[in-house]
């Protein structure tokens, strides 16, 4: 898959595309039979990448196709749809959002418009979380993408998952699982039973520094559960996990545990939030991409969460 995301840099990017036919297809790799993934770049959303910074993909059944995360803008969604159309002419029956973050949901508008009849699926808490953040998210995407953000809007799920749910693509069943608060309060994973491929969403970050926008303690608990049922191949929200996924989980677990332990110790020692931010987790610098953009914020979030521990 690595060469593919190199390719995504080399290919020319169109501006805001019109109909699916006009958008140039996102490069995708078939990571398991009928399971296609586009690898996002490790950067911040911009007019150049159209917000395609997260891994997105689709799974093709005999009856229809399920899209798993739609990309960071309507334009990115159009490019994903174009990639899908190169592989399959079947209808898109589901657009599944793994959580609320813009790089995962802002392509929804492309599928709702161009693949009428697609049902948007999300965690039971997704709609509330997205609505509350809608204004800020839209403002930010317009700043980051400029004109390339055209047509990007929030499209809420109409099918929700509060525990687990199975959906059928014709000869192929996906197991959706809604998690307690972890990376966010609306994380949803997708497990393809026929290939044992797990789309972990942002419950798993590889290479790119994770961002804590839910609960640090909750996330550590959820990580321990991710392997049930045992996947053969894992698609992370960012970075390549693949068949070596247990190592990726371990690495993420190490980072989160370190932030937990050191922030907790700082609170107990009466350190202020500023002091904790300056001190906690320094040994992790150099081990993650975009460390300086997110790590200090993670410590801030951890501090605010942990200071109310009893």
């Amino acid at each position: 898959m690595r060469w593919l995301w190199l390719l995504t840099w080399l290919l020319p990017w169109p501006g805001a595309a019109g109909a699916a036919g006009d958008a140039s297809p996102l490069p995708v790799a078939e990571v398991a039979p009928g399971v296609f993934v586009h690898a996002g770049v490790h950067g911040e959303a911009s007019a150049e990448n159209l917000g395609s910074i997260a891994n997105v993909g689709f799974i093709v059944g005999e009856r229809c196709v399920a899209v798993i995360d739609s990309g960071g803008s309507r334009a990115a969604g159009m490019r994903l749809l174009a990639a899908l159309r190169k592989v399959s002419a079947l209808p898109v029956c589901y657009v599944i959002n793994t959580h609320m973050h813009p790089d995962h949901v802002f392509g929804n508008a492309a599928f709702v418009a161009e693949a009428a009849g697609a049902t948007v699926v999300g965690h039971a808490k997704l709609a509330a979380a997205l609505t509350a953040r809608e204004r800020g998210y839209l403002e930010r995407i317009r700043q980051e993408l400029g004109e390339a953000a055209a047509g990007t809007r929030v499209v809420l799920p109409t099918m929700t998952v509060s525990d687990t749910k199975e959906i059928d693509l014709g000869g192929r069943t996906l197991l959706l699982r809604a998690w307690p608060t972890a990376h966010t309060d609306n994380d949803l994973s997708v497990f393809d039973r026929s290939t044992r491929t797990l789309f972990a969403g942002d419950l798993l970050f590889v290479e790119r520094i994770p961002s804590i926008d839910g609960s640090l303690r909750g996330w550590l608990k959820v990580l321990a559960e991710l392997r049930r049922p045992e996947p053969a191949y894992v698609v992370a929200g960012h970075g390549e996990a693949g068949a070596n996924w247990p190592q990726a989980v371990t690495r993420l677990h190490e980072y989160l545990s370190l932030v937990l332990d050191q922030t907790r110790a700082a609170i107990r020692a009466g350190r202020t939030i500023q002091q904790a931010v300056a001190e906690v987790g320094a040994s992790e610098r150099g081990r993650w991409q975009l460390f300086d953009d997110y790590h200090r914020r993670n410590v801030t979030a951890a501090f605010a969460e942990l200071e109310w521990e009893d």
């Binding site: 202020t272 939030i273 500023q274 931010v277 914020r297 410590v299 801030t300 979030a301 605010a304």
Partner: peptide, 16 residues
Amino acid sequence: LDTPTRAEDAAVVPIA
């Protein structure tokens, strides 16, 4: 007045 130049989290900006 001690403030960060760029806040890590705009909802939790520590000031002294």
